[in-house]
Design a protein around this nucleic acid. Structure first.
Lengths: 343, 343
DNA sequence: GCTGTACGTTAACTCGTGTCAGTAACACGA
DNA sequence: TCGTGTTACTGACACGAGTTAACGTACAGC
């Protein structure tokens, strides 16, 4: 009936072709220790398997052994922050490279759907769970998740739940990212550097990038001037507005660091309106490296990239590394500067 | 060892609790026909299953029956066109609703990776394959895909391969979309309507949206004027430039339809530069409904949405519907108008 | 020649479920 | 009493692989 199942070779076929028993094939292919198999036999088996293109049936394997070789990845709302799919891709590639299958479910931000998804994963006897968020935020996994090893990516268990859930956590290093962005401007000779932040209340990233900004100034021996710091709302328009207000200061900044690329785009608009050339009259650095924006602005926007792909890959590694389950360790992944032409 | 497998209830447990044999449980839960089971027994089994929270092990099920209940979704480069993940979500939801598991792999546009992915899917004995593209384009699946039922979404087998691969195909109705966008402007009283298209050579969508534009004009009895049609490159800047050139015509248009939202954003810029108010002095319609753009422009951009979610869902339906495998049927899904304030 | 041991191999069981063939109990008509 | 159905169920096998325990066989040592 199902053509997919009809003619695929089985261990039995490999055994027949190699002239040994099926058990021997299993031993050879799984590299079982403390069992003696002469090289000659081993080679024959391996060759037969290769010739037939044998691939073990993961269902049979998962049914028998405790290990299903499946990992479950639950992500909240990917669509609203499209670039976060990079986390998924990173996890996917890493899983594939290690011969694991990654099961992906996007719960669209719904808690009910999250519970369903975890249940679904557990049905498949997943070897581990990954919870990924579309932006750096607190998140508490459904209770059922306790039934399997888990890792958090781009999110963290809020302090109020931290006693119940102590999980390995992988986050972007927003402090370093903020410092790197600011540092790039300092290197270019700027000393009055404005900062248009995101909303600091709901977004840990905003708070941390601000900290990085201040750290970089302090390290460079530049006195912090809070009149140079504004809080936008991530949208382009707020970038335009705050950039204008910064440039209206008696001592205006010569450079502006924006906590995301949309606001940087807004700052570009302000510069254009005022006839300021970038980077000569005003240098700008963004954050997020949304290439559709950064590449397309003129001149290209120098910005800080979120290491989403690496974070996804690292999550898989931590999950599969038996020692990685030393629970509760938070890893910060560095955010590299992507140089274009706006500094 | 693996905590996930330890304490989950099995059919055996349900049978014990209901005081029947495991076979009976299997019959009841699978609703096997032409086997007599009195309601009283049936209810007891169902209740026992519910009380224990029994969920069948999909591996065992897939191993035994021909049906794995897994569908494979292969997508090319989601990240470059982030909104296309909606296709994935649509497919995911539809699959979940029908009790299927969706295996998703993004091959990042690599043909080698695509072959690997299909191989991976076949290992899992998938019941069907879905090939999804990030934008409407020709695509030829790897030959191995012939081993399972397949559906194409947002892509189609090019004529040169059409004799070898005749697959059900689901596409957005770009002609209708173009006509709808144009129609909205006509309804609003416009008769001179400019059109900034995408590149027509590489993109079927461009050609079809143009056709829709012309159809709508003809239907309304408006003479087509090719001087009102320009070909941009999808980027904002080309929208700005072509809008300017349209407005510089001796008889400038009072409305512009742009083949994507980025170019519409460019047209907004031109309008602003010239002090034209939208929609009073110039009406604009976009395409794609990229909410991050359309919602955030002032005034909000009226645009045509790609029915990605429905397309993904429909792919699953076609795949699971036995009659749906009447191969080679192309379905066009309607692109609805999303009204905001730019018309 | 006998026993012990290391080596190479395999039969047989296991995982959880679907499914076929079969059985026990009972009813009914001849 | 027998034969034939019908109802309500159950035993046993199958799916494809991993794993345990045991089986020869050959060779060494006595």
């Amino acid at each position: 009936m199902n053509p997919a199942r009809s003619k695929r070779p089985l261990q039995k076929d490999v055994a027949e072709r190699a002239g040994v028993s099926r058990t021997t094939v299993s031993f050879v292919l799984n590299g079982v220790e403390n069992i003696a198999i002469p090289d000659e036999t081993r080679d024959r088996v391996l060759q037969a398997a290769a010739e037939l293109g044998f691939r073990p049936n993961p269902m049979a394997r998962g049914l028998r052994g405790g290990r299903s070789n499946v990992l479950g990845l639950l992500t909240s709302d990917i669509v609203t922050t499209p670039y976060s799919v990079e986390i998924v891709k990173g996890a996917q590639d890493a899983a594939m490279a290690r011969g694991k299958t990654l099961l992906i479910i996007d719960n669209g931000g719904s808690e009910v759907a999250a519970v369903d998804a975890v249940e679904h994963f557990l049905e498949w006897r997943v070897d581990g769970l990954i919870f990924a968020a579309e932006y750096h935020q607190p998140y508490t996994p459904p209770p059922a998740a306790a039934a399997a090893p888990a890792v958090l990516v781009n999110c963290f268990v809020p302090p109020s739940d931290a006693d119940r859930y102590l999980l390995p956590t992988i986050l972007p290093d927003d402090v370093q990212g903020g410092a790197t962005a600011t540092g790039a401007l300092i290197e270019a000779g700027h000393t009055r550097i404005g900062y248009i932040n995101g909303p600091s209340e709901r977004f840990p990233a905003s708070r941390e990038r601000l900290r990085g900004y201040r750290d970089a100034l302090r390290t460079a021996g530049i006195a912090a001037d809070d009149s140079l710091v504004r809080e936008g709302d991530w949208w382009q328009e707020s970038g335009t507005r705050h950039a204008a207000s910064l440039l209206d200061l008696p001592e205006p900044p010569t450079a502006i660091f924006c906590a995301n690329d949309w606001m940087a785009m807004g700052a570009y608009e302000t510069a254009r309106d005022r006839g300021l050339r970038i980077p000569h009259d005003l240098a700008i650095v963004g954050f997020d490296n949304r290439t559709e924006i950064a590449d397309h602005l003129r001149p290209g926007l120098t910005t800080v990239a979120l290491p989403y792909r690496q974070m996804g890959a690292r999550a898989v590694e931590v999950l599969l590394d038996p020692a990685g389950q030393t629970r509760g360790v938070t890893e910060r992944m560095p955010c590299p500067l992507v140089r274009r032409a706006s500094v």
